[in-house]
Simulated scan of single mutants.
Amino acid sequence: MFSADPDDAETATINRSAPCEDHVNRESLPMPSQQTHPRKDAVPNTVDTVAHLPPGFTDTFTSRIVDVNGIAVHAVVGGDGPPLLLLPGWPQFWYCRQLVMPALAEHFTVIAADHRGQGASDKPATGYDAATLADDLAGLMAALGHSRYAVAGIDLGMATGYALAGSHGERVTQLAVVEAILPGISPLPNLLSDATTNEFLWHFAFNRLQDINERMVAGREEIYFGHQFATKAASPDAIPPHAVDLYVEALRDPAALHASFEIFRVDNDPLILGWQKEGPLDTGAGDRRRVLDRRQRRTGHAAGRHRRDRTGRSRLRAPS
């Protein structure tokens, strides 16, 4: 729910010619000390503790935890095929992908991750800049045995997916990101905008405040986050009540509530602009048609074509 416009979504893809898995000695990857093991205890927001999963979901998927960068990072893993890392949005966690994961698992090894501060991952007070979040994810994938992998991110996952490709590009074989802004690149509206824009985007400024937002929302999580789900989704009832209740309950944890605001407070502009200035991501085969152009203009347009959707708005079509 980072989107600057409900109908205008930035989409980009990176394709690399090398296969998703290579033969790099994974023990040599420059990652911090890691340990991975199945979740055995009844930890909230893991596969074993959430309800309303698709039939047979737990036959395919299990919760895993990786100790990396001094914290525990959670992911739900299952399927067979090239690895595909799914990154969730704000204020959700891995569960937002549970309906599509079984179909994806027929073709991919699916890794639906929780960023630090989300779901069943640890929720430290700091470390919510895009570079640190990307390092967490790279550590997660290395510990799970994947040296090269595709990444799909939505909302918050767009920023972290971009950061992962920018800082660990040698590991990202494909990137698909959608439905958010890129700090420092995407255009931002005026502080005082028309009523419709204000209604849609007011939470950006609110979430960036220090302390007062946490104090105002604590104990009223269902009001604030319930409003976000009702007004930012395609329709007020697009997200079923049981899912909203699950997300809201997770955010009643003071550490999770703090993290949900901290990701807005950090200044990612220098990081994103730095990766942008490095130039297009290299596909390894000289094919520059299928790259996410880090030299995007400040209009936020990625390498690709624009088309008009049924609303008449311009939408970005992924390069082909």
Rank of each mutant, 00 (worst) to 15 (best):
M1K: 03
A4E: 13
P6I: 07
D8S: 12
T13S: 10
R16N: 11
A18G: 05
P19C: 03
D22H: 10
V24I: 13
E27G: 15
S33Q: 13
S33M: 11
Q35Y: 11
Q35R: 13
T36G: 06
H37G: 09
P38F: 12
K40H: 12
A42H: 10
T46P: 06
T46N: 05
H52C: 10
L53I: 13
P54K: 03
P55S: 10
G56M: 11
G56V: 10
F57V: 08
D59L: 06
T60S: 04
F61M: 06
T62W: 07
R64T: 00
I65V: 14
V68R: 03
V68F: 03
A72S: 14
A72W: 06
V73W: 07
V73Y: 07
H74P: 00
G78T: 04
D80V: 12
P82C: 03
P83M: 00
G89D: 04
W94L: 06
Y95L: 15
L99V: 10
L99N: 13
M101H: 07
L104E: 07
A105S: 15
A105W: 09
E106A: 15
E106P: 05
F108G: 01
T109R: 07
A112Q: 03
Q118C: 14
G119C: 11
A120S: 01
K123N: 02
P124I: 09
Y128C: 08
T132P: 05
T132H: 07
L133P: 05
A134H: 10
D135K: 06
A138K: 02
G139K: 00
G139Q: 03
A143D: 01
G145S: 00
H146A: 02
V151E: 00
G153E: 09
L156E: 05
L156S: 05
M158P: 04
A159H: 06
A159Y: 06
T160L: 08
A165D: 07
A165P: 05
H168S: 05
G169K: 02
R171M: 11
L175K: 03
L175N: 02
I181T: 13
I185G: 03
S186R: 08
L188T: 13
L188C: 04
P189F: 02
S193C: 05
N198W: 07
L201P: 01
L201N: 15
H203M: 01
F204A: 10
A205V: 10
F206S: 00
R208C: 01
Q210W: 08
D211L: 12
V217S: 09
G219A: 04
E222I: 02
Q228R: 12
F229W: 02
K232W: 03
A238L: 01
A238S: 15
I239L: 13
P241N: 02
A243T: 07
E249S: 14
D253I: 09
P254S: 00
A255C: 06
L257D: 01
H258C: 08
F261D: 06
D267Y: 11
P270I: 10
L271I: 14
L273T: 15
W275G: 03
R289H: 04
R289M: 04
R290E: 08
D293W: 08
Q296S: 15
R297W: 10
G300D: 00
A303H: 14
H306S: 12
H306Q: 14
R307N: 01
G312F: 09
G312W: 07
A318W: 10
